[in-house]
Design a protein around this nucleic acid. Structure first.
Length: 415
RNA sequence: GUGAGUGUAGCCCAGUGGUCUAAGGCGCCAGGUUGUGGCCCUGGAUAUCGAGGGUUCAAAUCCCUCCACUCACCCCA
């Protein structure tokens, strides 16, 4: 028997209310802040991701679903959402629009990883991007929007982590200081961190091993090593957030996994978070558009995982509104009634009344049982006798009262 | 890629060598008199006990291999 591929899953009808709920909240918040939807292809030229995400990152090194198509093109199922949006921004000349351009997406993303709680090979992200403005006021707006979004979902006990990792000017100097610091403590590092020291110094900061955390706590902080412009930007952002009463925590060990981030980085996670708990993360990527062949264009955005949101909604017992369904079940007895019922059902639906029509020729008892489990308010019963009189039985499934009514009055009674 | 745990019906699961021609619950189907649901009662269908190999007179139960799932690491949403 075939199964869904590892790390993927079917979203069955019973789960859909959560998805529609989250999607509606996404649409609402984006409308509120003036972000417009964009949908990009599921796959892109591989180069778009290797160039933007960064050749040294895990995503590019081992997690991409890359294949050669029949035309010999190297393509990759998108492992993240920002690069495609930037590509679209350049491809369609969106820099000609008033800046910043504000876009959002809801999309499946693909990473070849070992699945575990809150981590899948195909998962879904909501993300939004504000492209073409360097002001810290935009950082504040994006973070505010992110925060308000999670609140609007009904999630509580969240924390907002904030940091600045500098820019092209100041980061190299900071990384050197960090390397120097760690070089003096190389013996004390865990095996993973010894590798990180060679490959990705920033990542040393967020190792979870207690010994490494202790070292990271004493390590030089990026926020203390910013150039004057970055420092001013970070200060201004914090002032804005204070003003907006957004409860952020500066975390000097917060670094993000993709190479394109500059200056502001932030992450939102549940306070009681176990592993794989980050709900969303984002930051500035002021050099990315230029890296992809555009003019220097500052930008900032957020990406958040929908599966993790739903996980948290369930954990926190947030009730989501049920999906709409038909309120009427149409039962029938006998051949003649069945034909008549089909016609009636179709007529009701054409006038906008949702109807579940019994199929087959099951007993009335069975049909009503089905009506009950379908959760309808009314059952309409068509029997031979009623049809001859031009009537049907209208049964209220809640208070178990029923009456015989003329078929012509049914639309009004049910509407 | 690494480590640990688990695999019995659609779902939750009992069963740790013979009484298992596999128990129970949920769900599903049908009955409890003629054309009426939810509660209750009765009955029924659904399981090559993850797959293959081995040990044994005898394996769901022991051993080996493989596969899948779960959790954790790595990393990320």
């Amino acid at each position: 028997m075939y199964r869904a591929p590892r790390g993927t899953s079917d979203i069955l009808p019973g789960e859909q209310a959560y998805w529609r709920y989250v999607e509606q909240k996404v649409v609402d918040i984006c409308q509120l802040y003036g972000y417009e939807r964009i949908d990009s292809p599921v796959f892109e030229d591989t180069g778009l991701f290797t160039r933007s995400v960064g050749p040294g990152t895990d995503i590019v090194e081992k997690e991409m679903y890359t294949f050669t198509d029949k035309g010999g093109n190297q393509v990759t199922l998108r492992p993240e959402g920002t690069a495609p949006v930037c590509r679209a921004y350049l491809e369609h000349g969106l820099h000609n629009l008033p800046q910043p351009v504000k876009l959002y997406y809801l999309a499946a993303v693909f990473r070849y990883e070992r699945p575990q709680a809150g981590r899948y090979r195909q998962h879904h992200q909501f993300g939004f991007e504000a492209i073409g403005d360097a002001s810290p006021a935009l950082d504040a707006e994006v973070i505010d929007m992110s925060w308000q979004f999670f609140l609007s979902l009904g999630l509580r006990h969240l924390s907002l982590l904030l940091n600045s990792i500098g820019c092209r000017q100041c980061r190299p100097g900071y990384l050197r200081r960090l390397e120097e610091y760690y070089a003096g403590h190389a013996e004390a590092l865990c095996p993973d961190c010894k590798v990180r020291l060679e490959r990705n110094t920033l990542r040393l900061l967020d190792c979870k091993k207690p010994a490494c955390q202790k070292l990271a706590g004493l390590a030089p902080r990026s926020a203390d090593n910013l150039c004057p412009d970055c420092a001013a930007h970070f200060d201004q952002l914090k002032r804005y957030l204070d003003r907006l009463e957004i409860p952020y925590t500066v975390n000097h060990r917060l670094v993000r996994g993709l190479d394109y981030y500059t200056r502001t980085v932030f992450e939102i996670q549940p306070m009681s978070g176990g592993s794989q708990s980050t709900l969303g993360g984002g930051g500035r990527y002021d050099d990315l558009i230029e890296e992809l062949g555009g003019k220097p264009t500052p930008a900032i955005g957020l990406a958040a995982g929908i599966e993790r949101m739903i996980l948290n909604l369930k954990q926190q017992g947030v009730a989501v509104p049920p999906l709409a369904k038909p309120g009427v079940f149409l039962a029938h007895i006998g051949e003649e009634a069945r034909d008549e019922a089909m016609k009636l059902a179709s007529g009701l639906r054409r006038s906008g009344t949702g109807v579940i029509l019994a199929t087959g020729n099951r007993s009335l008892k069975a049909q009503l049982r089905q009506a009950n489990s379908a959760g309808v308010r009314y059952a309409v019963i068509m029997g031979e006798e009623e049809i001859r009189a031009g009537k049907v039985i209208l049964r209220d499934m809640v208070n178990a009262e029923q009456q015989s009514v003329p078929m012509s009055e049914l639309p009004a009674l049910l509407g």
